[in-house]
């Protein structure tokens, strides 16, 4: 790993010593290969966001096409006063925080367990990663029908097998809908966290660990004072990427509970407002609220990025 990093450090081009002015044309030639990517992503992801902002300030319901116009902040007021939308905000936060936190902790434990050589490690690793590779909709269907089904689902089957015929047979989805959705998401996202943290563990400088061991540090001390600080960046990256994806989760909520029983998160509610209520203005306002909420995440992200870049400068 160190060798790789040295190679990377060497590969970083030195700023060419330039004197005088550089022609603007030459500068644009350097940027040219980047432009397709940049222009394209901006057109498809940034311009629509501006459109969302505009629509969110409009009174626009396609079931009532004549009554279209400027609405000011009415849609936003609606978002924050409508009990459905308000609870959707709460659900989204709860869902995201729970799933990210639990899968990070589990991912860390698994990464630590896997970060040692033993017979069959490759197979075990593949088994642990597999849930991440299942198509999300398929995973949601799998959990809903094959695992949670109260009559022939695996979970209740295991309970019967363990405790006999009079074992409790809970209705998983109607009894604990949000936890049911969260469990399926944790199952899918723990491998992702594990992968990132495993990459972090493998880039940990081994000599410091050896030195600490020789000095008589316990396994816990090594973990607490060497491993964990080293993993901080990776933990942040995992939390960041995980939050971005889970805030947006639509598949699991749509499939497992159809947004019922208090599990409707913002993406699902926006989908409903748009495609069933046809209230474009209000749906857009809810979208903007999501973005503002995500700015918290983005700020966090920028901190990670800038710390990465500092690292890069230091080489």
């Amino acid at each position: 790993m160190t060798a790789v990093r040295e190679a990377v450090a060497r590969a970083e081009p030195k700023p060419p010593a330039r004197t005088g002015q550089v022609k603007a044309a030459a500068r644009w030639v350097r940027r040219a290969p980047l432009l397709p990517a940049l222009i394209f992503t901006i057109v498809v992801t940034q311009l629509p966001f501006v459109a969302t902002l505009v629509i969110s300030l409009m009174r626009w319901n396609s079931l009532d096409p004549t009554n279209r116009g400027f609405a000011g902040v009415d849609n936003y007021t609606a978002v924050f006063t409508d009990p459905d939308l308000r609870s959707a905000i709460g659900t989204t936060v709860l869902l995201t925080v729970t799933v990210v936190f639990v899968s990070l902790v589990l991912g860390l434990v698994l990464a630590l367990l896997l970060d040692r050589k033993f017979a069959g490690r490759g197979l075990v690793r593949t088994m642990l990663i597999a849930p991440f590779l299942v198509v999300p909709v398929a995973a949601a269907l799998l959990w809903k029908h094959a695992l949670y089904n109260p009559e022939y689902g695996l979970l209740n089957g295991v309970l019967t097998w363990l405790f006999g015929a009079d074992a409790p047979q809970p209705e998983w989805i109607s009894g604990m809908p949000l936890i049911a959705v969260e469990a399926s998401l944790v199952w899918q996202w723990t491998p992702f966290m594990m992968l990132i943290l495993l990459a972090g563990l493998q880039s940990r400088p081994q000599d410091a660990v050896e030195a600490a061991r020789i000095d008589g540090a316990t396994a816990w001390q090594v973990f607490r004072y060497l491993t964990l600080p080293h993993l901080r960046q990776y933990l942040e990256l995992g939390a960041l990427l995980g939050s971005i994806y889970i805030v947006q989760n639509f598949d699991a909520v749509f499939t497992i509970t159809s947004g019922g029983l208090g599990t409707a998160n913002l993406p699902y509610t926006i989908y409903q407002t748009f495609y069933q209520a046809h209230d474009y203005g209000q749906a857009s306002a809810a979208g903007v609220v999501v973005v503002v909420g995500s700015i918290v995440i983005a700020t966090f992200a920028l901190r990670v990025v800038s710390s990465l870049l500092r690292e890069e400068v230091r080489g």
Binding site: F49, A51, T52, I55, Y271, F274, G287
Partner: peptide, 8 residues
């Protein structure tokens, strides 16, 4: 987030 973009 994607949901802010689906509509536009």
């Amino acid at each position: 987030p994607v949901e802010a973009l689906t509509i536009p």
